[in-house]
């Protein structure tokens, strides 16, 4: 297991001149190197750095508005960093967007599917985007449909699906082409317990046996604790801390406590009793 990364625990304060991006580490799948991004006058990311080695699940955690989704979009090339660099298997995401996208599977925070297609038509469409041959796509789609209990619904229009069913379709679409990096923005939203369990176990298997790197965001810290090898905690666009859960416990002096308490302690929102009391009145 990788220990806490001292470099990424403390980001430079705004205004500090940024050094040039660090050299690429060939052993990692994804490297986010001092990435900054502003939308207008609002700094969304400030010198964010972390890496996702092959075969590891890295949890990207943080309160609402911390910059998790923007970071994930930057990894995909959907958002251009104002400064810094993102490398996927050594290749700059900005310089080779098509090549890097072939390696990534992505589940957005709110999947926007083509609801006028059936589930099968949509997955066939995605298979075409990644150039899967007929036999492979049929086999994989059927496996996933069965595994996530969508079989029997695949020929219905997606507009008639429940939220959870749409989420399953988005998950299958991300996994279909066997990507080397999975970027999953709250992928378990709306999934029933069985499907959530299947997905978690599948991610663990893909990481452990296939060497797939997974960048995974969630607000459910029990899930992050259960499946992530490391976590990166973003707060106000900065990397507040990163490392294994055990290392973060040590850092906060909360040995034996769960990730939720560590997270609340790090983000300065530990004592919520007053808030709850006020809301209960």
């Amino acid at each position: 297991m990788v220990g806490i990364s001292v470099e990424s625990m403390v980001s430079p304060s705004p205004g500090t001149p940024l050094p040039s991006p660090a050299p690429t580490d060939p052993s990692t799948s994804l490297e986010v190197i001092r990435v900054s991004k502003a939308f207008g006058f609002v700094d969304v990311l400030y010198s964010v750095s972390f890496s996702v080695p092959a075969g590891q699940i890295v949890g990207l955690l943080g309160p609402n508005g911390a910059g998790k989704t923007t970071t994930m979009k930057a990894v995909l090339g959907l958002v251009r960093p104002d400064a810094g660099e993102i490398r996927l298997f050594g290749r700059n995401v900005v310089e080779d967007p098509v090549g890097t996208k072939r390696q990534i599977g992505y589940v957005p925070e709110s999947p926007a599917l083509y609801e006028f297609l059936t589930g099968a038509e949509y997955l066939d469409f995605v298979a075409d985007m990644y150039g899967l041959d007929r036999a492979t796509r049929r086999e994989r789609i059927q496996q996933f449909l069965t595994g996530l209990e969508l079989a029997g619904h695949e020929n219905s229009l997606i507009s008639g699906y429940s939220q959870g069913m749409k989420q399953k379709v988005a998950l299958i679409a991300a996994l279909l082409h066997r990507p080397r990096l999975l970027v999953l923005d709250e992928p378990l939203n709306g999934l029933d317990p069985r499907s959530a369990r299947v997905t978690k176990d599948l991610l663990r298997n893909l990481a452990a046996h296939e060497g797939v790197a997974v960048l995974f965001s969630t607000h459910v810290l029990e899930i992050a604790q259960a499946i992530c090898d490391r976590v990166v905690i973003l707060h106000g666009g900065h990397v507040l801390a990163s490392g294994t859960v055990a290392a973060l416990r040590d850092r906060t002096g909360l040995a034996g406590r769960d990730l939720e308490e560590v997270f609340l302690s790090l983000t300065g929102t530990g004592d919520l009793r007053d808030v709850v009391d006020a809301l209960s009145r």
Partner: peptide, 9 residues
């Protein structure tokens, strides 16, 4: 859905 479209290669 443009978000997904742009994420394809």
């Amino acid at each position: 859905a443009l978000q997904s479209l742009i994420s394809y290669p």
